[in-house]
Amino acid sequence: MSEAVVWLTIFVLSVFVGIEVISKVSSTLHTPLMSGANAIHGIILLGAILVTGYAESTVQLVVGLIAVVMATVNMVGGFVVTDRMLQMFTRKKKPAKSAGTDQSGAAA
């Protein structure tokens, strides 16, 4: 098997896995899922670090560093904001039980 075909195989299988794992998502979670997937492609940071680490001129270094900053914002910000959203989904279990009586939480 030639090397390009190996890469193609990984690609095609990943496509199917990507569709399969989210095929049963409820519309409730569309926003966090989009945001979480968004964070995952922040892994381009790895590529940005590699090209910056092998930069051969100042221009390349500067462009590479810009890419590193952008990719980090994508990755770190993406995971943090997704977690913030999901925190709200888990937190509501407690008040759900005492919704009728607990009025104080609304003012807070």
Binding site: V17, G47, L50
Partner: peptide, 26 residues
């Protein structure tokens, strides 16, 4: 994903493809 192929880096390829496929489906 395409940059993963350029850099011969599997994690970029797989991560990018997962997002590309699931994102299209979503």
């Amino acid at each position: 994903a395409a940059s993963g192929y350029i850099l011969q880096n599997t994690v970029l390829l797989v991560g990018g493809t997962l997002v590309g496929a699931s994102g299209t489906f979503l």
